[in-house]
Design a protein around this nucleic acid. Structure first.
Length: 491
RNA sequence: GGCGCUAUCGUCUAGGGGUUAGGACGUGAGAUUCUCAAUCUUAAAACCCGGGUUCGAUUCCCGGUAGCGCUACCA
């Protein structure tokens, strides 16, 4: 039976199967995303399975971290999470089946012996595959030794000749010589299954139709194909996804900075943007042109689901580009309704120790939304709205480009008097200050700079009039007086 | 070392036997403007190398090179 029969006969069933030995990293997140998109696109089922058979390195905390990461990028699952640690019986049964069918045999070699032999082989320049010596032990003798309590791992008996291959949905036909495939371990001597056994036992048991996973598993796949055959199970469709690289083109790792998905949440990257960016790393929607005929890149979740297809997955690895991610994030921020954006920004102000009342934050948000790429940027752009005292700034910044301290003072004094009685909404402020500029014979650029710096404490700030309106008359006037005083010190 | 995979601007990529090799991010310039952004316009920027096949290869084939992956009683 071919893979096609299986995939056509049933609704697709896919899974994300992380090992809880670390937080959800970007590579895992993308694999999860692709599986999710595929399931949602096809109306299939997305299963979450935790591969925690390595008890020493797995932890519950990491499981929670992975779930948290998945929720953050908006991935939900239909079944699970299943835990392999709770399914050991299934793997033992599979192992037993393989043993009785002659596909597996006990191996009495110790770790030390194996390591020693590998080392020798390496030094001699020979392939370091297991030499299959225990495969030659007569069955009766092997059983006796096992019965006598001798520690033994269970190995798979790989055919000595021929080829094993599979049709990968993204890489095409991939073929390996059986002679290159080791008699891999199925069950460790402590009875715990290894990866190969547990994955295929589970993948078979869960009736998975498509296996989408990282390309680092391509070399593992022939072993698993052999297992499917030995278990008389139908082969799923394999679709390997190219890897994500760091800027130096090596596999993305801690060395490259943030590698955990939640680190991006902490940076204030918008999850929609992260998902959008990740989806386009190694996959391109077939269609998707904008009204100008250009390729679109910004997609909603629904659009990604609609467009997703295995055909669009590329074969080459991709470098994770933080700049582009930041751009996606800025785009997503600007696409958010103001109320929603204000709500998302709030925690970052709280974290910075700033009291940002909801109504005021709501008023500030439209003034800063196109000035941020991350939610965290809001704090550095808009902190002056929420502090009693401005952070110290350079008094020289108050002075317009072509002007001196005296001019700056004149502007502030004059503006201060007209502002004391003028209307204080943005429109009135604009009119008042433009008239003031005319009265002083100063262009608007130089006119507004001292005021902006006085009020915001910096040269680059959101639009002046709207900003002043939100700040209010009392605060603005007070800050302008402080600025005048500051100017005294340098004139 | 062995085996496997891959190869288009700096990055993500589209394309495909004959194209001005397209788009996006980033970068430069300009426009707009109260600053900074945002926005718009614009510029520079790529088919790894060598052999074939072909009237014609960046595209197909082979080889090389480079990168990556696997090479555990980890997953």
């Amino acid at each position: 039976m071919t893979a096609e029969t299986l995939s056509q006969a049933t609704q697709p069933r896919v899974r994300f199967a992380p090992s809880p030995t670390g937080y959800l990293h970007v590579g895992g997140a993308r694999t999860a995303l692709f599986n999710w998109l595929f399931a949602r696109h096809t109306g299939g089922t997305f299963i979450l399975r935790i591969e925690d058979t390595d008890f020493e390195r797995s932890s519950e905390e990491m499981v929670e971290g992975i779930l948290e990461g998945m929720r953050w990028i908006g991935l939900d699952w239909d079944e699970g999470p299943y835990f392999q640690s709770q399914r050991l019986e299934l793997y033992r049964a599979a192992a037993e089946k393989l043993k009785t069918s002659g596909h597996a045999y006990p191996c009495f070699c110790t770790r030390e012996e194996l390591e020693q032999r590998r080392k020798e082989a390496a030094e001699a320049g020979r392939p370091s595959l297991y030499d299959r010596r225990c495969r030659r032990i007569p069955k009766a003798e092997a059983e006796e030794r096992v019965a006598a309590g001798e520690a033994a791992a269970l190995r798979f008996a790989v055919p000595e000749a021929g080829q094993t291959g599979f049709d990968d949905a993204v890489f095409g036909r991939v073929e390996f010589a059986n002679a290159e495939i080791e008699d891999f371990v199925l069950l460790r001597s402590d009875g715990i299954p290894t990866y190969h056994l547990s994955v295929v036992a589970d993948d078979v048991d869960m009736r998975l139709t498509h296996i989408l996973r990282g390309a680092d598993h391509i070399s593992n796949t022939p072993k698993q194909v052999l297992l499917y055959d030995a278990l008389a199970a139908e082969l799923p469709v394999f679709a390997h996804v190219p890897l994500i690289l760091g800027p130096d083109k090596t596999r993305l790792s801690k060395r490259h900075g943030a590698t955990s998905v939640m680190a991006y949440a902490g940076m204030g990257i918008v999850p929609e943007a992260f998902r959008n960016f990740l989806a386009l790393l190694g996959w391109t929607p077939g269609k998707g042109k904008d009204e100008n005929g250009k390729d679109r890149e910004v997609f909603s979740s629904a659009e990604l689901i609609e467009l997703f297809s295995l055909d669009g997955i590329s074969k080459s690895n991709a470098v994770f580009d933080n700049d582009k991610l930041a751009w996606f994030s800025g785009e997503a921020i600007r696409a958010l309704p103001v109320e929603e954006l204000a709500r998302r920004i709030a925690p970052f102000f709280a974290e910075a120790g700033l009291q940002a009342a909801p109504e005021k934050l709501l008023a500030v948000t439209p003034l800063i939304r196109e000035r941020m790429k991350t939610l965290r940027d809001a704090v550095s752009v808009a902190d002056f709205f929420f502090v009693e005292e401005l952070a110290p700034y350079d008094a020289a910044d108050l002075i317009p480009q072509k002007g001196d301290a005296a001019l700056a003072r004149r502007i502030l004094v004059y503006a201060g008097t007209v502002l004391a009685t003028s209307g204080f909404d943005a429109a009135a402020l604009e009119q008042t200050l433009r008239e003031a500029a005319a009265a002083l014979g100063v262009k608007t650029g130089p006119m507004f700079q001292p005021i902006r710096v006085a009020v915001c404490g910096r040269k680059n700030a959101p639009p002046l009039f709207e900003t002043m309106e939100v700040l209010g008359r009392a605060t603005c006037l007070k800050r302008m007086e402080e600025a005048e005083a500051k100017l005294e010190t340098i004139s």
